[in-house]
Nucleic acid binder design. Sequence first.
DNA 1: TTGGGTGCAAATGATTTGCAACATC
DNA 2: GATGTTGCAAATCATTTGCACCCAA
Lengths: 134, 134
Amino acid sequence: MTARHDTVRQGLAAAGTFVSAQDLHARLRAAGHRIGLTTVYRALAAMAGGGEADVLTADGQQVYRACGTGEHHHHLVCRSCGKTVEVSGPAVERWAEAIGGEHGFVDITHTVEVVGTCADCAGQPAPATPRPHG
Amino acid sequence: MTARHDTVRQGLAAAGTFVSAQDLHARLRAAGHRIGLTTVYRALAAMAGGGEADVLTADGQQVYRACGTGEHHHHLVCRSCGKTVEVSGPAVERWAEAIGGEHGFVDITHTVEVVGTCADCAGQPAPATPRPHG
DNA sequence: TTGGGTGCAAATGATTTGCAACATC
DNA sequence: GATGTTGCAAATCATTTGCACCCAA
């Protein structure tokens, strides 16, 4: 709950972008930490559950990212280099609530992900992972 | 490409809500179709790629849903019964573009999912799959 | 000593792939 | 005959679980 979990927490923060559990585990081992894959999974799950990390699914894998504030926000992700910017948009929050209400839904939650090509990568060949509409 | 794929297409349409490949395969077999799981996977992948179906990940599984129009839209999903309403929101589209532009991103795509409890299910115990912020 | 955290190894389960049979042109 | 589809069985691979071990209270 503490020492190891803290290692994971710091490793995730150090990564800066979205990383998979496997990836993070490899990085930690490479950095000399003696930690098991299982523990990384467990720590990440705990962090995600506690709002300390964001999770999303890419290519059938769960990828995690340290979540600074713990407050509600969304992500703008570069499809090429993976760079991520945390953004917030009151307009979207309001829209989601309104749409839900219109259809009689209550207790509305929403997930928004904006993907694009960042300025640095525009003009260079984009490696993969396009994402059609959703 | 045709007979079997059409079986899958129709099966998906008949399902009405999000179903997994495994689930859809089981339904088709139950309905007397002689079709392989592999083919169901391939057909669904093709449909998803061609905009005929929407995909999203739930509980580590990919779930698919027939997508009527092929046009860009989003989903309002009931967390309890899975009922889905297709919604569209110009406001969100504009917001995504604007946010991307502000940060120098181009070729913006976005994914939005609104989850709530529908009128029918409100008041009844919600079985599972909550979804924290994203 | 007691309970929770840890990690190895094995299990699980969705998805993919190799390949041979089959239909269609 | 060539080309593309199908589906079985086996392979793949992320994630989870069983269980023994070890540390801190």
